[in-house]
């Protein structure tokens, strides 16, 4: 842990060094950004959150004074190894396709007795306000590090969700005529200097999905996939979908299905 912290500090120092060359030629700039990422990946602040999440998972909490250790994330009660990589999936007990976050909230409500609005109040962290969900999702995600994403969407309800996600991916609206596909439907493009992945291919979707949850340097926080996609909607100048909305789970199902077979590298670190 301490070693990780030292690496984080070293990473931050290296990041400072690389701030200068950003003004150089663009190919060089991409190289430098890649190096910057590499340096930061040595010590990821998300590691701290992962440890916090581990504690929250096994701690007896809520009105029922119970831990989350009997929570079934899709592989059986308490089985977390590889669980993140096979979500979203259909759950018989709720008759719904659920992602990691909706399933986690379900467990906090059913096992620990929390009210849904109580556990989701801080679904993302703000300066000075931490988020238990962020910590727990980082912990659960890390349990799939090195595991292949596996969302074949073979159950009819999953296949339907993936199709609905595809619909939303191509749907254009708003004062800029945006859709997800505008920026993420072609190969080798950039917005300003930020490289854009083609999320309609296995490689592109895999590269994007394998590193979530991810520490975002520009935000100084770990973002979950729900947070990531809801912010995409904001960037598209649309209203924000609700946290855990089916439309977000549908998009996740579509992307995870496309990314299936890619090895997870999480928690990640991004711009």
């Amino acid at each position: 842990m301490i070693q990780g912290l030292i690496k984080t500090l070293a990473g931050a120092a290296v990041a400072g060094l690389f701030a200068g060359p950003l003004l150089a030629q663009d190919s060089k700039v991409s190289d430098e950004i890649a190096k910057y990422r590499e340096a930061l990946a040595d010590g990821n602040p998300a590691d701290l959150l992962e440890v916090k999440g581990e504690g929250l998972w096994s701690e007896k909490r809520g009105p029922k004074n119970t831990s989350l250790e009997q929570c079934d994330m899709g592989l059986g009660p308490g089985k977390l190894e590889g669980a993140y990589a096979q979500l979203p999936k259909y759950f018989k007990d709720t008759n719904k396709v659920m992602d990691v976050e909706s399933r986690l909230v379900h467990c906090m409500v059913t096992l620990q007795g929390f009210k849904p609005e109580e556990v989701t109040r801080n679904w993302y962290s703000k300066p000075g306000t931490e988020s238990d969900i962020e910590a727990l999702v980082t912990f659960i995600g890390a349990k799939s590090n090195g595991v292949k994403i596996n969302v074949p969407a073979t159950h009819p309800a999953e296949a339907k969700m993936a199709k609905m996600g595809e619909y939303i991916f191509y749907r254009r609206s708003g004062p800029q005529d945006f859709s997800c596909s505008i920026c993420h439907g072609q190969e080798g493009k950039r917005i300003r200097l930020q490289e854009l992945g083609n999320l309609t291919t296995k490689d592109g979707a895999g590269f994007a999905m394998k590193t979530w949850p991810s520490y975002r340097v520009s935000q100084g926080a770990v973002w979950t996939m729900q947070r990531r996609l809801i912010d995409c909607m904001r960037q598209a100048r649309w209203p924000e979908p609700n946290y855990l909305a089916d439309s977000i789970i549908a998009l996740e199902t579509y992307l995870q299905k496309t990314a299936t077979g890619t090895v997870m590298e999480t928690p990640g670190i991004k711009r």
Partner: peptide, 22 residues
């Protein structure tokens, strides 16, 4: 077309994703 036979349902689902006080 994206969404196939679920396109109409997907549109309804998307529209139902937002807070009432928007």
């Amino acid at each position: 077309a994206p969404g196939g036979k679920y396109a109409r349902e997907a549109e309804q689902m998307f529209r139902a994703s937002f807070r009432a006080d928007n």
